[in-house]
Write a protein that binds this DNA or RNA. Structure first.
Lengths: 239, 239
DNA sequence: CGCCTAAATATTGTATGCAATATCCTGGTC
DNA sequence: GACCAGGATATTGCATACAATATTTAGGCG
């Protein structure tokens, strides 16, 4: 995808997730185009992308509407991610853990270990942990060589808070605890993969996705209590 | 989606699945547009849709290429469908089978029963069975009210032979047997749903997807042996 | 006053044009 | 002969124009 195109899609996605449109509201392409300072062409493309992500819907000759959208939908998407990643883990375990995959995962484990071992955890650490977490998951997914699986997971990742990397954004106690739990689960998952325990790997991976759900709850609660201002892509959780 | 737009996408998808392009071949929009008798605009839109389906890929300013694509990829997509539908079945069982859902499923069971009971099965029966099968699956999926799940499954359905309705296209012994197996599995799945047996429903539904895989194998074999000419969307299985 | 009808308006769907970028071809150099 | 530079060509990305289709509005009728 081209540069301008990508930016327009990202901006539009953020607008929708931020609640810039009422649920069910019709989107007129020309208005949106002038609002974003581009022509209708990239807007149209973007809307079609977002339709695939389920953020808008369209009818022939009648344009696009924004879909109603709740925090429950995000939670549902996390469930789907957990299920698909569980499948991925099972496949990897059953097919045998390839050496370079094992090495990549062990690298992730080691990084996590170092972060957890620290007494005081800085925001930078949390961000590093998130990056590592994303890589851990990505490594397992790509090890499957299953295009349909990757496509399906890519779809879920388009929703806010669903991608594994957004774990533990806060420097709160909850965030620390979630990191420690996640790290522990990573170790167990790796063990299952190494030993070819498919069913166990699947179950662990599924459960692992609940960490993201907990993070989602923490964020939702902190916003509702007015404790935090809502950064981009967060306002929707209050609706 | 508009009419012309939809047709172009469908034609293009069929062309790619039929092997009209070599794997990795670059697609020039203008050539394709004139070949299809439309302008570049709908072609561009269509290519972007197909990119999300994984049939083509794109790089900024460098256009689209068709993705290499094998029968294994279809099989993989069926696995993903089985996993997601298994999740759907589990959710329905856990949340409790709503009366109207149960009624719709029972209707499907009855139709299947009537078809199976016949001694000689006509092509029309096979087609009816496929339609019923599609409805059975759709009913369970929609009963979840999980958008991400529906979106993910929609994605897999874009691949040929993955959608449940394409079961048992042949009037062969294999086709009959597959219908009977599918019908039996439907009964078991319904039983599990009715009794709230989530894990059982999930396992059954997952296994149920293998019927599609068997059908895929039958079709693949019959084409390789030259026994059948390849209808649209079938030539790819020989590659 | 409500409802139907039809013109006026707005919006989408498609085609086309132009600038930016990539690809290819030609000629030269080592 | 292989490799590199630079211009010619082709292709993409975006904007705009126009036709087809929806939506709105105004007016007439019961």
């Amino acid at each position: 995808m081209s540069n301008q195109q990508t930016r327009t899609t990202a901006r539009l996605r953020e607008m929708i997730l931020n609640g810039a449109f009422a649920p069910g509201e019709r989107i007129t392409e020309s208005a949106l185009a002038s609002a974003l300072g581009v022509s209708r062409t990239p807007v149209r493309l973007s809307l079609s992308v977002l339709e695939r992500e389920g953020l808008v819907s369209s009818e022939p000759n009648r344009g696009f509407r924004v879909e109603a959208y709740s925090i429950g939908d995000i939670s549902d998407a996390i469930d789907v991610r957990g299920t698909l990643e569980g499948m991925a883990a099972r496949l990897v375990a059953e097919d045998g853990l390839a050496p370079h995959t094992a090495a990549a995962l062990e690298d992730c484990l080691e990084i996590g270990e170092r972060i957890i071992a620290k007494r005081a955890i800085t925001p930078g650490d949390a961000s590093d942990f998130g990056e590592m977490n994303g890589r851990f998951h990505k490594t397992i997914i790509e090890a499957c060589n299953n295009k349909a699986l990757e496509n399906g997971l890519d779809l879920t990742h388009k929703m806010p808070f669903v991608e594994p990397a957004v774990i533990a954004i806060h420097d709160t106690i909850d965030g620390q605890q979630q990191m420690m739990v996640a790290q522990h689960q990573h170790r167990l998952i790796f063990d299952a993969l190494e030993n070819g325990e498919g069913a166990r790997a699947e179950a662990l991976m599924r459960e692992h996705a609940n960490v993201s759900k907990q993070a989602l709850n923490v964020i939702g609660a902190s916003i509702e209590s007015g404790e935090h201002s809502a950064p981009p892509s967060l306002r929707l959780v209050t609706s």
